[in-house]
Amino acid sequence: MHDMALQGGFAEAPTQSARAFRAVLNALARPGTIETLVGAQPPAPASIAAGVALLTLADATTPVHLAGAHDTPDLRDWLTFHTGAPLVGAAEAVFALGTWVALAPITRFAMGSPEYPDRSATLIVEMPALHPAGARLTGPGIRDTAHLNLPDIAALRANAADFPLGRDFLFCAGDRLAALPRSTQVEAV
């Protein structure tokens, strides 16, 4: 373990995680809304927003999958030190972190069961940038329509078609975060 694994966590966890959670909650409750997260500095290639989301939500009870280029010793050490989350394969993961290409196919991840649709994975997807443009979003949390640049409309449509089963998504770019729950209908414009 390197010293850098010990750095970059919350300085004042109760209030920082509270503010971060409210931002994530608002993003998920209003799909397409872009929030700003601050307070953590994870090792590259993880974004600030992804690091803050994991510090806020992950702990020893939530297995995490690091996909592709995000599966680095530095990030493993950082996540283990700050959250204690077990690092696992895709099928067992409660949270997964990576680029869309590294995470695909998303059908590898848990979608819950008809009795317990909440037992599904939340995928934290690293994006080059987030814009309120692109795919048209409708559904719960959206008054009329919202727009968000999504990586793969076909896969996300298939995910929404499985409702109430399915995975939920947090999209991160730098310190910005947007979310897409399984309940959102996605259409190409």
């Binding site: 995680s17 959670f21 909650l25 806020t56 939530t62 729950p181 399984r182």
Partner: peptide, 19 residues
Amino acid sequence: DEQTKRMIRRAILKGVAIP
């Protein structure tokens, strides 16, 4: 405590995702 809040927060997020 923070561990409890994380557990509740995860439940709230899944609740929001499955209205």
